[in-house]
């Protein structure tokens, strides 16, 4: 088996941050805040966060904040809960929460909770359990979880539970590994994992591992490196990660590296991108791959960052 080409990935991530001219970067311009979170967290996991100009990153980040307190995906784009979490996660990485008005960001999120406990993504009312996770994760990092109705939020998530133990976007929605991460993560952060049927969900999740060693996101779908994160983090939170073969998954992720130019792709020999690079590295982190810092399965931030938030006075 090959090894993780750490140096090349670091170079790749740094180059993506700078490149703004190719087609992909233009198409993804509106979600640059999430791109920043993926890239910077991957760098931190690889021990290279110090290669980044923090002041530059922070000043750009702040220019994406709106009067409402929410953040847009890039300068000039509308605020959305997705990018608000990414911004808060980036600030947590840099330990720079003091540059924002925490109450203002909190207000933005609190106002997105609906009567039934669910969350909208922004003022236009799209409801999805992804947004429940985001709200809960973000407020927890900000030490403001008490500002929403947690009980109702949890109840809504549970109303999205399916026969296979997984969770969907809204009640009745099909289970999907990404959605399961969001729901299990939200339940983990609110101390509600007793509401998860761990054995049933664990079986569904561990059966995501296909012959090649990679994980898919739903039954009878192709494997994809990003599920190394969504499935693995969920299995980790419910203490069932030993139900898959770690060795085979490590091999699959390593096989998805571009060993020449850096970066990780969804499947071997596909084009790399920052999203899959992060999820590949994060997956290896959960697999305790040597040289990669441990990541927290619920907050999707390095464990030392999460511990700094909760265990320093």
């Amino acid at each position: 088996m090959g090894e993780l080409a750490t140096e090349k990935h670091v170079r790749y991530i740094l180059s993506v941050e700078k490149r703004k001219d190719n087609f992909e970067s233009v198409v993804m311009e509106h979600l640059r805040m999430s791109g920043a979170y993926w890239g910077l967290t991957a760098l931190d996991l690889l021990g290279k966060l110090d290669t980044v100009d923090v002041d530059e990153a922070i000043s750009w980040l702040l220019s994406c904040q709106h009067e409402s307190g929410g953040f847009g995906g890039n300068v000039g784009h509308d605020p959305h809960i997705l990018y608000t979490l990414s911004a808060v996660q980036v600030l947590a990485l840099f330990d720079k929460m003091d540059v924002i008005d925490v109450d203002k960001v909190t207000n933005y999120i609190v106002n997105l909770q609906n009567e039934d406990g669910s969350f909208s993504g922004d003022m236009w009312g799209e409801v999805d359990t992804r947004f429940s996770y985001i709200a809960i994760c973000c407020l927890s990092i900000l030490h403001r979880l008490d500002k929403i109705n947690v009980e109702k939020a949890v109840k809504y998530i549970i109303s999205c539970k399916n026969m296979d133990g997984g969770f969907g976007c809204t009640p009745g929605g099909e289970s999907h590994a990404g959605q399961i991460f969001c729901c299990v993560g939200a339940l983990a952060i609110t101390g509600s994992l007793d509401l998860v049927d761990k054995d049933l969900l664990g079986w569904w999740l561990c059966e995501r591992q296909v012959k090649s060693g990679g994980l898919n996101g739903r039954p009878e779908k192709l494997p994809d490196v990003c599920y190394s994160w969504w499935v693995l983090s969920s299995l980790t939170m419910i203490d069932r990660v030993h139900w898959i073969s770690k060795e085979k998954l490590i091999k699959f992720i390593i096989d998805c590296q571009d060993t020449e130019n850096g970066g990780i792709s969804d499947r071997p020999d596909d084009a790399v991108d920052i999203f899959h690079t992060f999820f590949g590295v994060a997956g290896l982190s959960l697999l305790e791959y040597p040289g990669v810092k441990p990541i927290d399965p619920a907050y999707a931030l390095p464990v030392d960052v999460v511990n700094r938030i909760f265990f320093t006075k």
Partner: peptide, 23 residues
């Protein structure tokens, strides 16, 4: 011996808002 704790969220603690830390 392990960097990843698979029972971190099954145990009451401040990260899951189930127990305050007795500083």
């Amino acid at each position: 011996s392990h960097l990843i704790d698979t029972t971190r969220y099954l145990c009451p603690s401040p990260v899951s808002h189930t127990e305050e830390f007795a500083w």
